[in-house]
Design a protein around this nucleic acid. Structure first.
Lengths: 208, 208
DNA sequence: ATAAATATCCCCCAAAAGGGGGATAGGTGT
DNA sequence: ACACCTATCCCCCTTTTGGGGGATATTTAT
């Protein structure tokens, strides 16, 4: 049976041309198309699409919440974002919400069809610039150097487990006073004033 | 001028066929090919390639450290991994080390050429199953429910900035005693005993 | 060889945090 | 109507923290 598709896109003209293209592809079957995704959950429950094409900027419920509706209603339905936005915030929100692909609207129809094929086969189609952003998000940007000594790193790694000084000291088999000294030095090097800030900074910047 | 390519691949047969394909493409120019990447840094400094094709499993210096050598020597050179491995550990280590693409060896040469084109244009070519792994790494696996109230979430989000109770209270325009109450409730709900543990848990599990 | 950095320990003291109570008012749900 | 949750506030008391000193050995670097 052909691949079933549902489209959420508030631009009527665009939605209609997409629907037309898909309906006449032979390869895909257009199950439904809507200009808002407030009832996305019901719709995917009823039509059980293999793929959903989802815009982001829509009146009422936006596409990001739309992803969640779709995924909660039917996790196996693949959601491909189809949008003009390529800012990091929207992109990563979509990915976190469970999007299976992310295409920019400048993608030509032929590539769009390829992407649908790819997502059906378990891939994750992304426009090149999007894939690049995603990859770059892994490039541990700057291992900012705080010049912590080995011992200080040990102390810090215990600290970020939430251990109080006494525990840190006993784990490292040193006196609490020594542990406290190390902590003071760590706070100075990280430019923070207390353990809580140090933990926050260390975890955020992936020190240790 | 044609796109310059350097190959690191320890399988002689494969390396030679790749070299041959690239050398005869007209589109690309093979600058060098090696069976180990112990001198990857020197090599990219000398040949200044646009793209490096890099295997992972090589004698001596492995491909992951190879990425680092290349990127430190010449950050603008794009590194495409070309490997049989698709386990999470190797994949994400490569991405973190700065890889610009990740292709499985089952990729047909034509797709390989496409990938090189894509990476030159600033994309991030990935085999479908790889792209899928990458995307899935964003799917916030477990939104473990601690049933924090809105107010408690506000307090927690201030806490993880390292703010002391007084600051939290004044930011939320409530008394320090109220803020303290909220904190106590938060600690109970998160099953922790102090603010440091709460910060660690909240940041690790991406609550708030 | 000599200086600098590191790891270790100690004291004092004020401020902050944490645990234990308890109280009031507004809202929700049944 | 009543129980329950939430948000607000207050007190007491002990432990922990953070900042300020300082001291001594060992290691590292120059």
């Amino acid at each position: 049976m052909p691949v079933g598709i549902v489209i959420f896109e508030d631009n009527d003209r665009l939605r209609e041309s997409l629907s037309y293209l898909i309906g006449n592809s032979g390869e895909y079957k257009l199950l439904a198309d809507r200009n808002d995704c407030s009832e996305a959950d019901t719709l995917v429950r009823v039509y059980q699409p293999d793929v959903v094409l989802m815009d982001i900027d829509m009146p009422g419920v936006n596409g990001i919440d739309g992803i969640k509706l779709v995924k909660e209603a039917r996790p196996q339905t693949a959601v491909i974002m189809y949008t003009v936005f390529e800012d990091d915030e929207k992109l990563f929100k979509c990915l976190c919400a469970g999007a299976n692909g992310y295409l920019l609207k400048k993608t030509p129809p032929q590539k769009l069809f390829e992407a649908i094929r790819e997502v059906i086969e378990g891939g994750a189609p992304m426009s090149p610039s999007v894939a690049n952003k995603v990859l770059r998000s892994f490039h541990h940007t700057k291992p900012i150097e705080y010049n912590l000594t080995k011992r200080e790193e040990e102390v810090l790694s215990l600290l970020i487990k939430g251990s109080p000084v006494k525990i840190i000291a006993s784990e490292l088999k040193i006196s609490t006073e020594t542990a406290r000294s190390h902590l003071k030095n760590i706070y100075n090097k990280l430019h923070v004033n207390c353990g809580k800030e140090a933990i926050a900074k260390a975890l955020r910047e992936k020190i240790v």
